[in-house]
Simulated assay, not measured.
Amino acid sequence: MSADGATRRVLRWSLAHPLFWPLLALGLLLLGNGLFNPGFLALQWRDGHLYGNLVDIANRAAPLVLVSLGMTLVIAVRGLDISVGAVLAIAATVAAWTIARTQAAGAEGLLPLFAAIAAALAAAAACGLWNGLLVVKLGLQPIIATLVLMVAGRGIAQLLSDGQILTIYYEPFAFLGNGFLFGLPFSLFMVALVFVGLKLLLERSALGLFVRAIGHNPVAAHVAGVRARAITWAAYVFCGFSAGLAGLLVSSNVASADANNAGQLLELDAILAVSLGGTALAGGRFSLAGSLVGALIIQALTTTIYAIGVPPQVNLVVKALLVLVVLLLQSPAFRAQLRARARLAGHGGGA
């Protein structure tokens, strides 16, 4: 095979790879920042830690990555969870409440930390269990079922906190969101652990195949012997669990739990990240790596908007436009119209 032929094959393979466009978008965002700000891409090793804008983007994107991984599984089985922001607020509030109570009871050492983590993750998983109950057992539409907790969840968190912002004065808990391990933020190791564990589970077992089968045709999957209802329920539980992990990172990072504002509009960012990563909103096709890249794109976009001095409100407009573009590109009817117009333009050019 000639060098030109090999190059064309590599190019076609690259363009067809599902991660090509998300990675290209992320690369262009980072490159654009680097051109306008020469020091943007610089990394420094100082006091045993790695510092730089790239590290900051990855660190700030960690909560969104965790939530996006859970959202990926839910969307892959034809579901949706718009309560993840409220679940994050509940987990953060439960963690702060537990630390305060255990310290008041005289607990010392790492006991308050372990108690807070266990309580927060148990509460978040229970939220996912509730969403799964409404969707799987009662047959409610996913957007309606999770809307219940989206509305009520912040009320539950505010009841736990008596409507106050709970501050956390506990150094071991602060390590989760602000600590460093081997020179990198500890939150990155949490993300890596969840991502690798989930990827191995989906690719080294039949679970990934079952998830795709449920997304493509849940009735046919059930007839074929796939435990579609149990897997769908588990996806909602994991989505709640991942939102709980994100709540621990967020509350640890700011040393407080704000039941009213923590995780606001997180569901929009998570759905957008999953869509940007190539997961089909209709279910069946999903990409964990794509969701991770999608979350990094959103955080890089947010950083870019702030860096060039644009008002923060513009960030919401840009995200809304991105949602519109992604939905249009995933619409078969819209893609068919684009192909038809391209063919017409080609015939016109040939004439």
Rank of each mutant, 00 (worst) to 15 (best):
G109C: 10
L110Y: 14
L110K: 05
P112Y: 07
L113M: 04
F114N: 05
A115M: 13
A115T: 02
A115D: 07
A116V: 00
A118M: 01
A119L: 04
A120Y: 02
A120S: 12
L121P: 02
L121V: 00
A124W: 03
A124E: 06
A125I: 01
A125P: 05
A126V: 08
A126F: 14
G128E: 07
G128S: 10
L129Q: 01
L129E: 03
N131F: 01
G132P: 02
L133N: 03
L134W: 13
V136H: 09
V136E: 10
V136W: 08
K137P: 03
L138Y: 13
L138F: 14
L140K: 12
Q141A: 14
P142L: 08
I143A: 09
I143P: 02
I144S: 12
A145G: 11
A145I: 12
A145V: 12
T146V: 09
L147H: 11
L147K: 09
L149W: 10
V151A: 13
G153I: 01
R154T: 03
R154D: 07
I156R: 00
A157H: 04
A157Y: 05
A157K: 02
Q158V: 01
Q158W: 02
Q158N: 07
Q158G: 03
L159G: 15
L159N: 11
L159P: 05
L159K: 12
L160I: 14
L160R: 08
L160M: 15
S161E: 09
S161P: 10
S161M: 10
S161V: 01
D162Y: 13
D162K: 15
D162Q: 15
D162M: 11
Q164C: 07
Q164Y: 14
Q164I: 07
Q164M: 12
I165P: 04
I165T: 14
L166N: 05
Y169P: 02
Y170L: 08
Y170H: 13
E171I: 09
E171W: 06
P172K: 08
F173K: 02
A174G: 02
F175K: 06
F175L: 10
F175V: 11
N178K: 14
